[in-house]
């Protein structure tokens, strides 16, 4: 083998080997594909639908105490969702890279804000997460690493919030790990929520996006603290056993009460076998219909 051929061979080997370490360009506007969990992400989930969430006893109790007017409290009107809202909300993503001014390497990836979620800055420069007693803010603190062509981002230091927009809680001790995988013009996010306070197991969901030429908005307007009818100092909540919404899923869809309360086992397919004898298909679907008698309200 001549020197030139050897060089060429080495160069080709490097080229083949490089993708394992390669970064992928994630920049652009990514339009959300909202087929999956459309109701939960759009109009919002049914108030008593906590099925499929690995809530522990404390999480269930907190969800049952949740009254929707909580978010109309004067102190909470300008409250933001946590970064989990990437998965729980309907919005599209816009991502861009921030270069290090000296080296030109990507110092951070940024996902632009929405009206109710702060931007997510994914630090790629190896900086550590803040110490445990550091403040938790609206953005959380996120670092990222490349695993081949997959970006893995870890978010800590968030404020408390909701894993589902009907009061299913997540605590300020929660961590989100987000995997970004790009396949051509499609982007898939897989999000792992770990919360030692309210979840017994990680809650894992995926969201998909299509590359779009329509620019996605990267921020909401400044917030105004208006009066939404809850007097200052009032703390809306339901007393134990007094939540009036807890039978809605049973009334509308025939789903057993034990299933709507969630818990880890309700995440798994085999749970359907456990409750199949308790499930009664309604004669007529009244709201948000799907399934065999769904569509058109049949």
């Amino acid at each position: 083998m001549t020197f030139n051929k050897l060089s060429l061979c080495l160069a080709m080997t490097c080229c083949v080997a490089l993708p394992a370490l390669a970064e992928i360009d994630l920049s652009g506007s990514w339009a959300s594909i909202n087929d999956e969990d459309a109701m939960e992400r759009g109009a919002g989930p049914n108030p008593d639908d906590w099925a499929g969430l690995p809530l522990n006893a404390a999480g269930k109790a907190k969800a049952l105490a949740f009254e929707q007017s909580t978010i109309s409290m004067p102190e909470r009107i300008c409250w933001f969702q946590t970064q989990w809202h990437i998965a729980a909300g309907p919005f599209s993503l816009r991502m861009w890279a921030v270069p290090d001014p000296l080296t030109g390497r990507v110092q951070a990836w940024v996902i632009g804000a929405w009206e109710t979620r702060a931007p997510m800055t994914i630090w790629m420069d190896g900086r550590p997460h803040p110490p445990k007693d550091a403040p938790h803010d609206q953005t959380g603190f996120t670092t990222g690493v490349w695993n081949g062509n997959e970006l893995i981002a870890t978010t800590t230091h968030m404020k408390s919030g909701y894993v589902r927009r009907n009061g299913a809680p997540i605590s300020d001790e929660a961590t989100i790990v987000t995997h970004f995988r790009r396949h051509g013009d499609m982007l898939t996010l897989t999000l792992f929520m770990v919360d030692p306070v309210y979840l017994t197991e990680p809650y894992i969901i995926t969201r998909s996006y299509n590359l779009s030429t329509n620019p996605v908005s990267i921020g909401g307007p400044p917030c105004t603290q208006g009066d939404e009818g809850v007097p200052e100092g009032r703390v809306p909540h339901y007393l134990p056993g007094k939540n009036p919404m807890t039978s809605e899923m049973t009334k509308i869809y025939g789903i057993p009460a034990e299933a709507e309360m969630g818990g880890a086992e309700t995440m798994y397919p085999e749970y359907r076998d456990k409750i199949k004898d308790k499930f009664v298909l309604p004669a007529k679907c009244e709201r948000n219909c799907g399934g065999p008698r769904g569509g058109g309200g049949n």
Partner: peptide
């Protein structure tokens, strides 16, 4: 994705990372 064991390995790794930094 929903394998509990895999999830707990992830959770343990995260917890260790947090413990080390603190």
């Amino acid at each position: 994705f929903t394998n509990p064991m895999a999830g707990w390995v992830l959770a343990a790794s995260l917890a260790m990372c947090g413990a080390f930094s603190a």
